[in-house]
């Protein structure tokens, strides 16, 4: 393999190391830093544990008094009344109402914006609108809630006067406002998904003479579908968890209704409402917060796990 003379060992001068290869100091600082940083990262697990523990222990106290099937399948929610009922269905349907109206607004507006941004917009327009959407994504929800209560509610009554509007609170109005709130989220995630579709796929279709409409609708959109679904799943999760808008614009009456002009309470609004009212520690009303919170946590967790997996899929296919 090697020529004989070269591999002869020994001989030559200076077999001792020129300079030591050992560490001049034990570098304890280096190790300490690593431990501290790992602790910072580990804190997040502690936070999750804390959330789960607080929800579980509170919910356990709640279910000691209320049977779990009454909670999950009961149709009357009146935890603070003398004749208390703990059927969670009304506030769950309230949340579903919000999710429905939010999606009615945010899916079309968000996806149309995303298709325009990723496929049609000239670079200059894209460079202005994308950051604008990002800035709008940060509008405080209290501001949107007040806007829904004071502007959107009368405005929608003017637009749809034939509906049966009563009172200042309407679940549909709150839903539309939540929808507006999550449009930037849907638009920006779908835009990312569509832009990560490889150029070659588009160019291949264009080269064969396909029109832009066909390329967008038949090539890019289907190719980006997992990212788009992820965006919608995250939107649902946001809508389920949104509190302030719903608390301010949808009212506080727990009832099963599918009329967008009626007031209805959601899970989040119930928690917010109860917390701001006079509740004392240790009462059953206090523990309902934890039971409803646990349900909310489970619902959003399932959604998020699903979305994380979808996003990872489209990243893996194209990157």
């Amino acid at each position: 393999m090697t020529t004989a003379g070269i591999t002869v060992s020994g001989g030559g001068a200076g077999n001792s190391p020129r300079r030591s290869l050992e560490a001049p100091s034990p570098r304890y600082g280096e190790k300490t830093v690593k431990v501290i940083l790992a602790a910072c990262a580990g804190l997040s697990v502690l936070v999750t544990t804390g959330i789960v523990l607080s929800l579980l222990s509170g919910a356990a106290d709640f279910f000691r008094e209320v049977p779990i099937h009454e909670f999950l399948f009961g149709t009357t929610w009146a935890p603070a009344f003398a004749d208390a009922h703990f059927g969670v269905i009304p506030i769950v349907t309230g949340t579903l109402n919000i999710v429905f109206w939010a999606l009615v607004v945010s899916i079309p507006l968000g996806l149309l914006s995303a298709i325009y941004l990723s496929e049609y917009a000239p670079n200059r327009v894209r460079k202005t609108i994308k950051p604008m959407l990002e800035v709008l994504e940060g509008i405080p929800t209290v501001a949107i809630g007040l806007f829904a209560l004071m502007f959107l509610r009368p405005f929608l009554e003017d637009v749809f006067p034939f509906l049966d509007w009563t009172g200042p609170h309407a679940i549909g109005v709150a839903g539309v406002a939540v929808g507006l709130l999550i449009v930037p989220l849907v638009a920006s995630i779908s835009d990312d998904a569509m832009r990560s579709v490889p150029r070659g796929l588009r160019e291949g279709a264009y080269a064969l003479g396909a029109s832009k409409l066909r390329v967008s609708a038949r090539v890019v959109f289907p190719a980006a579908i997992s990212g788009i679904v992820a965006a919608i799943v995250l939107a649902v999760s946001r809508a389920i968890g949104e509190t302030m808008v719903v608390l301010m614009a949808a009212g506080a009456r727990p009832q099963i209704t599918f009329d967008p002009t009626k007031s209805a309470q959601t899970m989040t609004a119930f928690i917010g409402q109860t917390a701001t009212g006079e509740i004392s520690f240790g009462t059953i009303a206090y523990y309902t917060i934890f039971a409803v919170g646990a349900l909310l946590f489970v619902m959003t967790l399932v959604m998020n796990l699903f979305a994380v997996r979808l996003v990872r899929r489209f990243r893996e296919v194209y990157e």
């Binding site: 200076g14 077999n15 001792s16 190391p17 020129r18 030591s20 290869l21 050992e22 560490a23 001049p24 570098r27």
Partner: peptide, 14 residues
């Protein structure tokens, strides 16, 4: 120079 680069006491930084 005769010292094992992957020796137990050797510090990669050094």
């Amino acid at each position: 120079h005769g010292a094992d680069i992957y020796g137990p006491k050797v510090d990669p930084v050094q």
